[in-house]
């Protein structure tokens, strides 16, 4: 289906360690280019903000050019520019926002500073079409673990719960280090866990059954550390697959349980899971099982769209434009802790 009557949106993302640029018309994905600095952070065991910011500056205009080439359009064809205004790393956000303002100024096109977290939900529209209303969204990544009630992507997003300490992806990175697995920890733990028995060790489920939709993974990480240290002290070999599987089960058990509970309480029949951790095979499998049992339709974008990218920002930009919201001003400020109930930063 051709949508050439819909505005062409350029989306720019630079909130963490991926420089992402996407081009979107409505729900149609035209291109999605990402330059990642993840390899430069690996030896530090986590994202180093200054390293990420330097990489964003180097990658920004070449990535925009690649996205235009891939979509077969020119910069002058762009109708509006959407950019992540927050939440994220201050210095990293500022590179994308500065570039986006410059494009808007040079092209004389409107600028929309949008919310990274809501972008993670909006991106599903590029794969599965318009989001059913309302939808419960579970956002899980290295920086975020949030449960949202989405009635309208552009105008009505509510935060139901959030992590009170570590993000789920952060817990994966820390446990991977304990097990001598590489950074980022998600994929190697997922792989190791396939050979392990998730029931062999019972790790704690943080904030399980506490009546909130909040999460906690810091205690879980410490419990894994204790278990590993005890084994080493006693001279027992650490069964990496079993520890990985048991840890992973504790994470995805709480995530999926609370997400399904949120659907039930709010009478919602649709769920989206997105963010980098949505690429996790056990999270997908358990969520499918529990959603099916509860009569909830589950949507999970393909892994490439789950991690940070510019297409998700363009997808949210398209929603904001379609809703007729006013463009951001050129003095738009980045907001490292932009709340999720503001899809458009202002």
């Amino acid at each position: 289906m051709s949508n050439t009557d819909l505005p062409l949106i350029l989306g720019i993302e630079s909130s963490c360690d991926e420089t992402g640029v996407g081009l979107v018309r409505g729900c149609e994905l035209l291109s999605d280019e990402v330059a990642s600095s993840v390899d430069q952070h690996a030896r530090f065991g986590g994202v180093v903000p200054e390293v990420a910011s330097r990489a964003h500056l180097e990658a920004m205009t070449p990535t925009v050019q690649r996205a235009l080439d891939r979509a077969g359009v020119k910069l002058s064809d762009v109708d509006a520019i959407a950019v992540t205004a927050g939440p994220g790393l201050a210095g990293a956000l500022l590179v994308g926002v500065s570039a986006a303002k410059a494009y808007a100024l040079a092209l004389g096109k409107p600028l929309y500073g949008v919310n990274h977290l809501v972008g993670h939900v909006a991106v599903d529209q590029l794969e599965h079409g318009p989001l059913p209303k309302p939808t419960v969204a579970l956002l899980v990544s290295g920086g975020h673990t949030s449960l949202l009630l989405v009635r309208d992507l552009a105008t009505d997003v509510r935060l139901l719960g959030d992590t009170v300490d570590d993000a789920a992806g952060e817990a994966y990175d820390k446990v991977a280090r304990l097990l001598d697995l590489p950074y980022p920890g998600g994929p190697p733990i997922d792989r190791a866990a396939r050979e392990g028995d998730p029931g062999s060790i019972r790790f704690p489920r943080g904030k399980w059954g506490d009546g909130t939709y909040d999460f906690s993974f810091s205690g879980l990480k410490t419990a894994v550390a204790r278990w590993v240290e005890d084994a080493e002290r006693d001279g027992r070999p650490v069964p990496v697959p079993d520890v990985a599987a048991a840890f992973q089960e504790a994470v995805v058990d709480v995530l999926t349980r609370k997400a399904v509970d949120a659907c039930r309480e709010h009478g919602v029949e649709h769920m989206v899971i997105s963010g980098g951790v949505a690429a996790n095979s056990r999270l997908r499998a358990l969520a499918e099982e529990r959603c099916a049992a509860a009569g909830i339709e589950l949507r999970v974008p393909r892994p490439r769209l789950c991690t940070d990218n510019g297409a998700m920002i363009a997808a949210l930009g398209a929603e904001v434009v379609a809703a007729g919201l006013p463009p951001s001003r050129l003095d738009l400020a980045t907001d490292t802790s932009l709340p999720v109930n503001r899809p458009l930063a202002g």
């Binding site: 500056l57 570039a99 986006a100 410059a102």
Partner: peptide, 8 residues
């Protein structure tokens, strides 16, 4: 970042 994008 502003200069690069403006020039482009």
């Amino acid at each position: 970042a502003t200069a690069h994008a403006l020039a482009e």
